[in-house]
Write a protein that binds this DNA or RNA. Structure first.
Lengths: 101, 101
DNA sequence: CTACCGATATTGCTAACCGATATAGTACTT
DNA sequence: AAGTACTATATCGGTTAGCAATATCGGTAG
């Protein structure tokens, strides 16, 4: 349906954005992404979260909620500056592709 | 400088957009992309163009210009509908990440 | 103590990425 | 007509990402 190779970058930006607003965890972000039309499988999402953490954009802590373990992720400073740069690039894309000067 | 894994999708959208406006060729699109802050090497760009053609988003023809061979790419109908979908997804991203409701 | 459930993690294969390097095609020079 | 220069495209090869399917974990309730 949606060709993922175009949009996986969007997904990463969504993730960091949400993680900048509040702690997020895997299953939650999967359904959040689904609301935006992105069907991401666990085999894609979890390794992606691990990489984003490994590369310094996110950090995590484990918590027990309703008797179930969750791994909450939040954006680091590097994640926030990544997000700021993303906004610039998105606006570039909008100016070019959508505004139709 | 720019973390490519976030932006390679943007690059592909730029490419299809330009190829929908006029015929484009590799070296030209490389400098166009550089103007948007994307430094893409030939080893990334050419295989990418080949895939976009293989997958039906672009088609090409060879021409001799100023004594040099160029391979001009243009967007197919499928490329155009990809572009339309990209615009929707971009606007989603803008609403979410930038508009700060 | 075990069955269950929400949630995260891993496996194994395929495909993409990308710097470096090679190749192709034309024109100009001599 | 062979050599050189220039522009442009193409490939190589090692590394990493993507992904569906499967496995595992941690806690609670019965």
């Amino acid at each position: 349906m949606i060709d993922r190779e175009f949009f996986l970058g969007f997904v990463k930006i969504h993730i960091i954005y949400h993680a900048s607003k509040e702690p997020i965890f895997g299953v939650e972000i999967m359904s959040e992404l689904a609301r935006h039309g992105y069907d991401i499988s666990p085999g894609t999402l979890y390794p992606m979260l691990h990489r984003l953490e490994r590369d310094g954009y996110l950090f995590s802590n484990r918590e027990i909620v309703g008797g179930k373990m969750r791994k909450y992720y939040r954006a680091t400073d590097e994640g926030l500056s990544m997000l700021a740069q993303s906004k610039k690039q998105i606006m570039e894309l909008v100016k070019e592709v959508i505004d139709e000067k």
